[in-house]
Design a protein around this nucleic acid. Structure first.
Lengths: 246, 246
DNA sequence: GGGGAGAGATGCCGC
DNA sequence: GCGGCATTTCTCCCC
């Protein structure tokens, strides 16, 4: 265990990304408090001193600390004690390691940037490029309009010149989406001193209860699905395999 | 690369948790579309066939697939091609690996359960145990009251017998919290056919804009911080070190 | 750094 | 499975 202590200390100093398969217990104190009994885990300490404690299932770490954590190491009772502390965030984590199955530290170059398409922002762009997807005669005026009660996705006029607030969701519309739309509509009415402002929720689908609430407020649901532009790009290639070989 | 192909195939068959430090490119298609150019990554494939693609910084994986993903492997042009597909979710991911820095697969026992304290649920319990923390004379009636517009954290009466809806947030109160509270209050008014229902937002702090909105609706903010019971437990021990050695 | 809101959110519980 | 909602949410953008 003393060997691992020395290696970990050196690798932390070099800001090396570290992966450890081990048997350990974890306690955390900060925004909340947690305790994890001794069990098998995968520990990942990244170059930015983020630490993730992963178990053998699930998407999310069972425990973690944010970037900028500092580490203090000790060996006692044949155990490696890792004290991870984040002073600014007033958080700490203690890991007691009894057994290490594997230990890997290897220099890794900083990552590439992910290209992501099909987000809500892409929905907004699609509406700006094709306003009739909201309804015939819709004329968008602005996007990301800032009000004191939040940011409005798309702001525009319908064919009658009535002001329209459009809120986009890439997923099934719910209460929260209707709440948000309502907040914007009310604030616009208040700010402009007018009584008639339409609320339009653009999303692929909507829950029955949210639809009821939407209609209670006199708002409209428009079925819209976020575009996935990379799909088109991939289709333009003869095949996915060829695309990647390039 | 053929050796790694064979090892990975065998380890996947055994549902072994696998960690790979490598140079790779990743493309994803499903709920959205993404492409990540060749770069250094840590790949983690868990026992439940979750895959995480981590870079050297940050809390979250840059790419991932959920539990239940199936894998198809190939070697071409000295590259290991990992095709990960989730048929139910209609998602897939392609990883092209050009270089492997380390490869680890080791049987890990299923994890322990995390004990977590200081959640919103703990706030609700604390209020039930000490109703005067909301205000003098407050009498809680129920928790998790189900309405058609959502679940009410705490429902009760003030010293005048006026109905009170209490919404708890463990973090700084914001617009969304006020929206939620408002939705419950309105629904209760509607359901009970009464005009006077008080809304109380219990949270450690509140943003200035949210406070304005709260007050516009005639609601109240009560400063409450989520309890952290493990902190007390740890204090009861002579020291944290002793606690862990037990 | 705080406020506001999206996320390929995830995860939990209830119906 | 969907619905509703918390999360040690995380992350990004903008002031």
């Amino acid at each position: 265990m003393q060997d691992y202590h020395d290696r970990l200390l050196a690798d932390l100093k070099k800001s090396m990304p570290i992966v450890i398969g081990c048997h350990c217990a974890v306690s955390y104190s900060g925004r909340a408090e947690s305790y994890l009994d001794y069990n098998d885990c995968i520990l990942i300490i990244k170059s930015d001193k983020t630490i993730l404690v992963h178990q053998t299932t699930g998407n999310n770490p069972i425990n973690y600390m944010k970037p900028g954590t500092t580490y203090t190491l000790n060996v006692a009772d044949k155990r490696l004690l890792i004290h991870a502390e984040h002073r600014q965030l007033k958080e700490y984590m203690d890991i007691h390691v009894t057994n290490i199955y594997y230990y890997n530290a290897h220099p890794l170059a900083p990552g590439s940037t992910l290209i992501l398409e099909g987000t809500e922002k892409d929905m907004v762009e699609a509406i700006m490029n094709k306003p009739e997807s909201i309804e015939e005669g819709f004329k968008p005026v602005s996007t990301e309009e800032h009000t004191k009660y939040g940011f409005i996705d798309v702001f525009g006029n319908d064919t009658n010149g009535t002001l329209c607030v459009v809120e986009c969701k890439r997923y099934t519309g719910d209460f929260k989406a209707v709440d948000q739309l309502r907040r914007y509509v009310e604030k616009i009415k208040d700010a402009k001193g007018i009584n008639t402002v339409r609320g339009i929720l653009a999303c692929p689908s909507i829950t029955p209860n949210a639809l009821t609430m939407l209609q209670d407020f006199g708002f409209t649901h428009v079925a819209l699905t976020p575009p996935k532009r990379l799909a088109k790009y991939n289709k333009a290639q003869t095949s996915l395999g060829d695309f990647h070989k390039s």
